[in-house]
Design a protein around this nucleic acid. Sequence first.
DNA 1: ATGTGC
Length: 370
Amino acid sequence: MTTVSPRVIASATSWIEGEAVRQLERTAALEGVRMAVGLPDLHAGKGHPIGAVFGTEGLIYPFLVGGDIGCGMALFSTDLSARKPKRDRWTTKLRGLDGPWEGDAGAYLAERGLAPSDFDGSLGTIGGGNHFAELQSIDAILDEPVAAALNLDPSRLVLLVHSGSRGLGESILRAHTERFRDGPLALGTPDADDYLRRHDHAMQWARASRALIAERFAECLGAVLSPVLDIFHNSVTPRDQLWLHRKGAAPADQGPVVIPGSRGHHSYLVVPQGDVASSGFSLAHGAGRKWTRSDARARLKPRLRPEDLVRTELGSDVICEDRDLLYEEAPDAYKSIDRVLADLQEAGVARPVARLRPLITYKTRGRDGD
DNA sequence: ATGTGC
């Protein structure tokens, strides 16, 4: 059996944890894997790395997509003026997003041609972990023509939503794992067809949920939205003769993507360029974790109070009433988004279009909703 | 990541 050598898209000065590279190598050695690439935000996950793409032939591995099938980033422009942001007022008005949507989720999904599921009560909710909805200003335009083609207007704020398929994707992976553990599915078999059908449903559910999160957020502020882009970073999809398993990897073959920094740093809108096959048709999906969740709590609790974390270095507000989550998701727990972007630029696979600056990040109002 | 786990 031939083993492919994984490529890591990162300069020598970028810190990549040894365990993440070992996970990349082990995963690259799985049966049927023909291509493995670590993106600059590569970090260790639970057995397999995050910030990576694996191309297989003949087989698919549901665990390489993970439980949050269809997780991704959606960007919307708003009619809110960037010139005089009413940050305090908006921060007060942003509530009620944690609980179930009061509207008819089944009808919302049906309008998009989607069948109902047992998890539709979570549609339009952000969820936990690194998920968020963030109001941002367009700090700098770095590629005028591309920005203009996307109708980006620096005088208006934008809304970035990071969320996925909540309990739905998790249930799909669990059903697979109960029968096959961490085993693959052979393409063309009924089991593979069944998984891919459910996977595609979870993808579209996640996209619909991001749109609904944005609508609920905008409704709190009385804002009007218009969609700019929506991209998946957890998925398995065919490309040429390979099946690309993206686990925390943005597509490089579907136009512009947003790469979020930490909640205290900028995000970048970038456009893929050059030989994107060299990076597995993929780009980084974020800054990447530097510290595990437990490390972040242990290191930061002694030196930072929650009050220090709800206002960031860039002067943005973070709405996060879950104390532990505030530490786990602190900007210091993440690598530098500028380094990640520089690595992609040096590899010749992406160039920046706009720099986005956080104004208000909504994580959670707490377990009781609001 | 998780309508989260005893």
